[in-house]
Design a protein around this nucleic acid. Structure first.
Lengths: 243, 243
DNA sequence: CGAAGCATTGACTGGGGTCAACTTATGTGG
DNA sequence: CCACATAAGTTGACCCCAGTCAATGCTTCG
């Protein structure tokens, strides 16, 4: 037996995502379950990281949504990206890291300390890929804001969310639960809440989305993706392709 | 002597930047000079990385400017960020990395292989900080595109360039050389070339900038910074503060 | 049941895009 | 060294996407 024992697909969505990025061995799986037992609850609206302040030890987001935000002196707010179950928080490669953005809980959260990559080498691969994906989300966000119109921005964002949530097994048939208000979507997409509302109205009329508070359905994700030229994220040859 | 010998301030701008991020020892300095001797020239407009293709071994940009770009199916182009002397190219933490954006030379470049952090531990700190700064530039870019008007976008970009170039010693008195066309600035800031031209005209009339092809002067960087709420980048407590 | 937050809609405005013409560099070959 | 070609910068006229302002419903939850 030269091959390390792989853990079975995890039941916890957050860990299912990590395993989808790069399989890890049974030892790492045990460490993760153990960490999950020491999970901490974070109430909605609480800040996990504050821009300019030291960064906490690396954590895994077990459940709930969070946002990386920056606020301009005059109050304008931009959300740099959303954090979903299975995402990493506070993984840095520089010494004494300072937070470059504020992370705020959009729902009540569960987070747990991330087993260190040194102790569990089979996790470092998943961590590295997760990190690279994070960067890739930022690039997608830049393209959205810089070169897409309002309709495309919303569609592109929804497709990203669908893709990311599906890695954790949190979607079914193009549908997923979410805690987004139209104001939050506006702060992600660089629009105003009023205009988000108008665009959502159009998307509904087009039959592209069903949006109810807390719940979003993309009726034809594939068609929408090809219409706006959206493509899945790919940051490593070794990352398993989705079907 | 418990302290490692620190190298004197490097003469090459690219290395001066790295040393400014985190001091390294004489051994690393020698390795860098040695790498510089094996520098490669890249002609203008050549691609260093291509989106979706495997990433080359880690390199240091010794001289010249490059851009991280993404092109939408219909030809719209967005520049995610600019690469300046001393910036790192192709440093990834995931296995078998694939490029998430295309990197194209805006001028003739010199690049050299980056001495590995394993062989020269005193460099890993500078690499880590450089990596964190890169992310921080992406966040700045997102805020620019999402929540700033055209005037602020240009001012913010110019201040970022001034700050970054000054770390390599490539500025004097708010002035620096650059290879930017108004079309390139437009692709960075998410505007059209025509509108960039109009905004530059206003900035000239305001006395904020002197822009000639190849050369940019910010007449009062400090005042401009406080007017638009710009702040220097800070990603590590251990990173030396600028004066 | 009241209050606060969120969603929705209309009327109007304006920043930035589009189109097109023209001027000014840059440069390349004869 | 000039002639021509091409790229880059400049300007005006006009338009439209998205912002602003404001009023009105609709939930949700204490």
């Amino acid at each position: 037996m030269s091959q390390a024992t792989l853990a079975p697909p995890p039941a916890i969505p957050a860990f299912r995502r990590l395993a989808a990025l790069a399989p890890f061995d049974a030892r790492a799986d045990i460490a993760l379950r153990d960490a999950a037992r020491r999970a901490r609850r974070i109430p909605i609206r609480q800040e996990l990281l504050s821009e300019g302040k030291p960064v906490m030890d690396p954590q895994i987001l077990l459940s709930g949504w969070a946002a990386r935000t920056r606020i301009l002196p005059d109050g304008r707010r931009q959300i740099m990206g959303l954090l979903l179950p299975g995402d990493l928080i506070g993984h840095c490669y520089q010494p004494e890291p300072l937070a470059t953005s504020t992370i705020v809980a959009l729902t009540d959260l569960e987070i747990c300390p991330a087993p260190s990559a040194e102790d569990f080498p089979s996790l470092s691969c998943a961590y590295g890929i997760s990190h690279a994906l994070d960067e890739s989300f930022l690039l997608a966000q830049i393209t959205r804001l810089g070169r897409m119109n309002a309709y495309e921005r919303l569609a592109d964002l929804f497709l990203e969310l669908l893709e990311r949530l599906s890695m954790a097994g949190l979607t079914s048939e193009g549908a997923f639960d979410h805690p987004l208000t139209q104001e939050l979507v506006a702060d992600v997409t660089g629009l105003t809440p009023v205009h988000v509302n108008r665009v959502v109205k159009t998307m509904r009329q087009d039959g592209e989305v069903l949006w109810a508070t807390g719940y979003l359905v993309l009726t034809a994700p594939g068609a929408l993706a090809s219409r706006i030229g959206w493509a899945p994220f790919r940051v490593s040859l070794s990352m398993p392709q989705r079907q």
